[in-house]
Write a protein that binds this DNA or RNA. Structure first.
Length: 431
RNA sequence: GCGAUUGUAGCUCAGUAGGUUAGAGUGCCAGGUUGUGGCCCUGGAGGUCGUGGGUUCGAGCCCCAUCAUUCGCCCCA
């Protein structure tokens, strides 16, 4: 092992596939990222990029002091100017900050954004959870229309479909306003309190810390005790209830099946109304693909004039892992050369011609490579195979004398001579 | 933050109850075979056994610490 290793629970994504960790291959990442961009573009979203760190206060204020993220998971440090800075643990608050700073909310009353960026959370790693993870997401500001909630949901589901995850289930819920949520919490506490001692240790802990999470248990005993518990939707204010009903109507008319999941809650303080999660089928414990929700109070919390918002986010690493688990084939490595030059015979005669051929082909926009270790035909050909070249360009003293190059199809092993002057056109036609 | 797990060659791993010079497969390099490969044969290089202490006549193996890995919990993406 080398002296230095990647920082704990962070991954290197490599230029070649590995048998053990197939998902840590840049070609696969690029494919998924470009699929995401393509979907966002189709839906009319524009890209925003923000710095990798922000003032710490932006996150403590927006996410909530009591959340795990703020209380124990932030990568925080003091910079040389004495400011407390934090590597961003999530993408929404920085996007809001940037929009406020550049007045985008005023100039673009309805603002549809997408982003792709690294998030950092200082926690113990495990499968699908890393200290640095890439998040793909969208945010829409300026509209409370439930139709935009439906659009964000459809965008997310369409993205998963385009990369081959077709078996998905949409879970929706409404968490209402902070006030209605508070009323519900009291009702839930009142309901569970009489039998509290019968709950699992974990359930009892959640009762204290975050009662909503009691609903999210897998413990069969707890589930039984929760039968007949009050539902959050019954505590919604009229506006939130209507909003939730409208969302369902839009989803239905768009032909998007959904299930209402009363146990679905989101972690951060700033969420309001719509909460949704997309769940993959047949994935077991790692089934949540991504989720999002509405945050009508966040912009005001960050110091702007009250502006509603809704967003969706997904973790790239988990997405890649899911693709692996489902055995979904992605298109071939886009970094493969089209052709690979192989030389035979006297190096001093042949190599200069090969170098010239390479530069001509590259200038014409063809991806082509050669072996720089001056070895036998077989070894050069093997390098070509390892790099995934589709064609071999065989160049020896004989070919040079005739002014041709051998064009060998690696799939069929058929080889024919092509005049040097015509190789570029031939390859362009084959590309 | 809590609980486990693993660390020996580039890669996958073996290494018996502590006992000479630490092994295999694969990959790599060279030759057999200066111009058409992947096979085969022969040879070769490659290790501070994660690191630092300790126990012992003697440690890859036992003990402590430390770093790193992987996995679970909490929570999340």
């Amino acid at each position: 092992m080398s002296k230095y290793t990647a920082p704990p629970y962070m991954n290197d994504v490599l230029p070649f596939p590995s048998k053990k960790e197939a998902w840590l291959h840049t070609a696969r990442w690029r494919y998924v990222e470009s699929a995401f961009r393509a979907v966002c573009r189709r839906y009319g979203y524009r890209e925003i990029r923000t710095p990798i760190l922000e003032q710490t206060e932006l996150f403590t204020r927006s996410i909530g002091e009591a959340t795990d993220i703020v209380s124990k998971e932030m990568f925080t440090f003091t910079d040389r100017g004495g400011r407390s800075m934090t590597l961003k643990p999530e993408g929404t608050a920085p996007a809001v900050r940037a929009c406020l700073e550049h007045n985008l909310f005023n100039e673009h009353p309805v603002l549809k954004l997408y982003y792709q960026g690294q998030n950092f959370r200082y926690e113990r790693g495990q499968k699908g959870r890393y200290r640095q993870h890439q998040q793909l997401g969208v945010e829409v500001f300026g509209s409370t229309d439930a139709a935009i909630d439906a659009e964000v949901i459809q965008l997310a589901m369409e993205f998963y479909r385009t990369i081959g995850i077709t078996e998905q289930e949409l879970h929706i819920n409404s968490v209402g306003t902070p006030e209605s949520r508070k009323a519900y919490l009291e009702a839930l506490r009142d309901f569970t309190r009489p039998n509290l001692e019968q709950f699992s240790q974990e359930g009892q802990m959640r009762f204290e810390v975050n009662p909503l999470r009691m609903l999210d248990t897998k413990d069969s005993g707890d589930l039984k005790l929760l039968e007949g518990a009050p539902n959050l939707v019954d505590f919604l204010d009229d506006d939130s209830r209507e909003h939730f009903e409208l969302l369902q109507a839009y989803l239905t008319s768009a032909g998007v099946p959904y299930v209402i999941d009363h146990r679905l809650v989101r972690g951060f303080d700033y969420y309001t109304r719509t909460a949704f999660e997309i769940v993959g089928k047949n994935l077991g414990a790692q089934s949540a693909l991504g989720g999002g929700g509405r945050y009508d109070g966040l912009v005001a919390e960050c110091g702007g004039t009250s502006t509603p918002g809704i967003g969706f986010g997904l973790g790239m690493e988990r997405c890649m892992l899911v693709l692996d688990t489902l055995g979904i084939e992605l298109p071939a490595d886009d970094e493969r050369p089209l052709a690979f030059v192989v030389t035979l015979g006297d190096e001093k005669t042949v190599r200069p011609v090969a170098v010239k051929l390479l530069s001509e082909l590259r200038a014409a926009g063809i991806a082509v490579d050669m072996d720089y270790r001056y070895k036998k035909f077989g070894q050069q050909a093997r390098t070509a195979d390892e790099l995934g070249a589709r064609y071999l360009l065989v160049l020896g003293e004989g070919e040079i004398a005739e002014g041709v190059v051998g064009l060998r199809d690696q799939a069929t092993k058929e080889q024919r001579n092509v005049p040097l002057a015509e190789v570029t056109q031939e390859l362009l036609a084959l590309a």
